[in-house]
């Protein structure tokens, strides 16, 4: 299940539709005792689609993040972990449209210590940054970024990062840093945001996720605590995240803990 292709995803989305139709509402269906494993897992997978990025932009982002966090023995690449969808959703939402950004002028360039001073929200940074990077690629290699060899892709990414490539309407480094920052976010953020698919990022490093209560184990020094990670959706939907594994008891305890009411004295 770790490396679902986009096609597999679309198929699963179809199954999910069926499962919803026969149930009495999702929460009941998702109780571990209410359905067998297959439809439950299928239901959890939301159909994914791009809403902000255009097709050429999708191709650029998928190609770029596949280089930024490539596939290795520890986990799939950022692309295969759904991070392009994460970036798309962030761009379409509050952050992409300038939430929490002070938007009043006058605008002028500042020092590095003064930080971001562009009259641009993240949507524009991506749109212009991608178009101009692709223009640079076409001029240099006759193809857009996504069609380049990985060696040339890396060369372009280094060029944006290190200032060797200048883009006309956007600082290349600001564009690159935002793209890299978002890629890392998407790889490690809760899967509910569209990336970190199947908790690939968390599994790679051994992060246990959100069901966290460690009073009894924190002083077990130098003994790795490794469990299958738990995401927000797992807990909200009342699922035992991993019914078949040896760590089962620990998980049950952690999830129970999160639902417990006995936290406060008296």
């Amino acid at each position: 299940m770790d490396e679902l292709s986009r096609n597999d995803f679309l198929k699963l989305a179809g199954i999910a539709g069926t499962a919803t139709a026969v149930g009495e509402g999702a929460p009941a269906l998702l109780r571990p005792d209410a359905a067998d494993a297959a439809p439950v897992k299928a239901l959890l997978l939301q159909p994914q689609a791009f809403t902000y990025l255009t097709q050429p932009e999708q191709a650029f982002v998928e190609a770029a993040i596949d280089r930024l966090i490539p596939k290795d023995a520890s986990s799939p690449s950022a692309k295969d972990a759904g991070v392009a969808y994460y970036i798309d959703q962030q761009l379409a939402g509050a952050w992409g449209t300038g939430a929490r950004q002070y938007r009043q002028g006058p605008w002028q360039q500042g020092t590095p210590e003064q930080g971001y001073q562009l009259n641009m929200v993240p949507q524009q940074l991506y749109r212009i940054g991608i178009a101009q990077t692709n223009a640079h690629c076409r001029k240099t290699y006759g193809k857009t970024f996504d069609a380049l060899s990985s060696v040339h892709q890396d060369e372009i990414l280094h060029g944006l990062e290190g200032g060797k490539i200048a883009l006309a309407e956007v600082p290349a480094k600001a564009f690159f840093d935002t793209l890299l920052g978002n890629t890392v976010e998407g790889f490690f953020a809760d899967p509910l945001y569209g990336g970190n698919r199947n908790k690939a990022g968390w599994k790679a490093i051994g992060f246990p996720g959100v069901a966290a209560a460690y009073t009894g184990v924190i002083e077990r020094h130098n003994i790795p605590y490794r469990v299958k990670p738990v995401g927000i959706a797992d807990v909200e939907q009342g699922m035992d995240p991993d019914p078949d594994r040896a760590e089962n008891d620990e998980h049950r305890r952690r999830v129970a803990m999160m639902h417990g009411n006995t936290r406060r004295e008296g």
């Binding site: 290795d72 890396d154 790679a204 490093i205």
Partner: peptide, 16 residues
């Protein structure tokens, strides 16, 4: 490096 295969390898190795 700040990204790529080597970065990922070091993140996985040293996270904990």
């Amino acid at each position: 490096p700040s990204w790529g295969a080597e970065w990922k390898k070091q993140v996985v190795k040293y996270y904990d």
